[in-house]
Deep mutational scan, measured.
Amino acid sequence: TSSHKLRLYERDDYRGLMSELTDDCACVPELFRLPEIYSLHVLEGCWVLYEMPNYRGRQYLLRPGDYRRYHDWGGADAKVGSLRRVTDL
């Protein structure tokens, strides 16, 4: 099985509160109590970021690497509604 891990930060450049995720999350704002995510670091696996909860809205593919600001993943703003692991490519 492949492993997945990413870290979410409330501010750009990996500042502020950090939360780690290793499984799908249908509602990021509810789980982490963060209305917006300004940076993230994908440590393992690929993920799909959705701008709205319950895997809706615009989708962004996140490969392992650094995303210091939301425009690094192509986002128009810092809204992160849900995240899902990519298990098949």
Rank of each mutant, 00 (worst) to 15 (best):
D24Y: 00
V48F: 09
T1L: 12
S39Q: 00
E44Q: 10
L31Q: 15
Y55C: 04
M18A: 09
E36C: 12
K79S: 11
G57Q: 05
D13E: 11
G65V: 01
L89K: 08
L8Y: 03
G16H: 02
A26D: 11
I37E: 15
L62S: 03
M52P: 00
L40S: 01
L61Q: 15
L21T: 04
L40Q: 00
V80Q: 04
A78T: 06
L43F: 10
V80W: 08
A26S: 12
H41D: 05
L43S: 02
M52D: 09
R33G: 10
D72R: 08
G74D: 09
R56V: 11
R63E: 13
E51R: 07
D13N: 14
W47N: 02
L21Q: 00
S39H: 05
D72F: 06
H71G: 11
Y55W: 06
M52Q: 14
L40M: 15
R68D: 00
R7L: 11
L89A: 15
F32T: 09
Y60K: 03
F32E: 14
D23F: 10
N54T: 01
A26N: 10
Q59N: 09
N54G: 13
D77P: 12
M18E: 14
P53Y: 01
K5H: 08
L34V: 10
V28D: 02
L89R: 15
D66E: 13
Y60L: 07
P35K: 15
W73N: 12
R69T: 14
P53F: 04
V86F: 11
K79N: 09
C27A: 10
G45C: 05
G45N: 00
L40C: 11
R58D: 06
L83Y: 04
G45T: 01
D13P: 03
V86N: 04
R58K: 08
R68Q: 06
Y55N: 05
L8W: 03
S2R: 09
G81S: 02
G74K: 08
P53G: 02
D24P: 01
W73Q: 05
Q59F: 09
T87D: 15
M52R: 12
N54M: 08
G65Q: 00
R69H: 14
R58A: 09
Y9F: 10
R33C: 13
S39K: 05
V86D: 03
C25S: 06
S3C: 12
W47H: 02
P35E: 14
G45I: 03
E10G: 08
V80Y: 02
S19Y: 10
L83E: 01
G45P: 00
E10I: 01
R69P: 02
E36F: 09
R56E: 15
H4W: 11
S3Q: 07
K79P: 03
D72E: 09
H41F: 04
K5D: 00
Y9S: 02
V48H: 10
R33N: 13
Y50P: 07
D66R: 12
W73P: 04
V48M: 15
E36V: 10
F32I: 14
E36S: 14
E10S: 12
G57L: 05
H4P: 03
Y60P: 03
D12C: 01
Y60W: 08
L34H: 15
L6C: 04
H71V: 13
S39Y: 09
G16D: 07
L8G: 03
D23R: 08
H4L: 01
I37N: 13
R33F: 11
Q59T: 10
D88P: 08
W47I: 14
R84Q: 10
G57F: 02
G75Q: 06
R69S: 13
E10L: 08
W73K: 12
L62A: 04
L31T: 14
R85V: 07
D72W: 04
H41N: 11
N54L: 10
M18V: 14
T87C: 09
R11S: 09
L21K: 06
R84K: 15
V28H: 00
G45K: 02
V80A: 04
L62W: 06
T87R: 11
P64H: 04
C46L: 12
L31E: 10
R63H: 07
R7D: 03
L61A: 14
E20S: 01
Y50H: 08
T87A: 12
Y14N: 05
C25L: 01
L89E: 14
Y55E: 00
S2H: 09
E30K: 12
D23Q: 07
W47D: 07
Y60F: 15
R33E: 14
Y60C: 01
R69V: 11
Y50S: 03
L49P: 01
S3R: 05
Y55V: 01
Y70H: 12
L21W: 03
R7N: 04
D88Q: 07
K79Q: 10
D66N: 10
N54S: 05
F32L: 09
L8Q: 02
E30H: 08
T22M: 14
S2V: 12
R68A: 07
G81K: 11
R7A: 04
T1C: 15
S2N: 14
G81D: 00
V42T: 02
R58S: 05
E51A: 09
V42I: 06
E51S: 11
D13I: 03
H71S: 15
E51H: 09
R84T: 06
S39W: 06
D24S: 05
Y9R: 03
R15Y: 07
G81H: 00
H4G: 02
G65S: 05
Y38K: 09
E36N: 13
L6G: 01
L83N: 04
V86T: 10
R68F: 15
G57T: 02
L62E: 01
Y70Q: 08
V28S: 04
Y50E: 00
D24F: 06
D66A: 08
G75I: 09
C46Y: 08
V80S: 01
H41T: 06
R69N: 14
R63V: 12
L89I: 09
A78W: 08
V42E: 05
H71K: 13
L43P: 00
Y38S: 15
I37P: 10
P29H: 08
P29R: 10
A26V: 10
H4Q: 01
L31R: 12
L61H: 14
E44T: 10
L31P: 03
Y9V: 03
D66T: 14
P29I: 08
S2L: 11
K5S: 06
S2C: 09
E51F: 00
E10W: 07
R7V: 09
P53I: 02
D24A: 04
S82D: 02
P35T: 14
S39E: 01
E10V: 04
P64E: 01
H4V: 01
L6E: 01
W47M: 09
E20W: 01
Y14L: 07
V42M: 04
D72C: 11
D72Y: 08
R85M: 13
R33D: 13
A76P: 13
Y67P: 02
S19W: 10
L61Y: 15
V86Y: 01
R69G: 14
R68C: 03
R56S: 10
P35Y: 12
M18H: 11
D77K: 13
L49M: 08
L83K: 00
C27P: 00
A78S: 07
M18L: 11
L8S: 02
L49W: 00
L17H: 14
R56T: 14
F32Q: 10
Y14C: 05
L43G: 00
S3K: 12
V80D: 06
C27R: 07
V80N: 09
K5W: 06
G57I: 12
D12W: 11
S82T: 01
L34Q: 09
G81Q: 04
L40R: 00
E20R: 01
Y50A: 01
D66P: 13
E30P: 03
S3G: 07
H41L: 04
R68G: 03
E44R: 06
L6I: 15
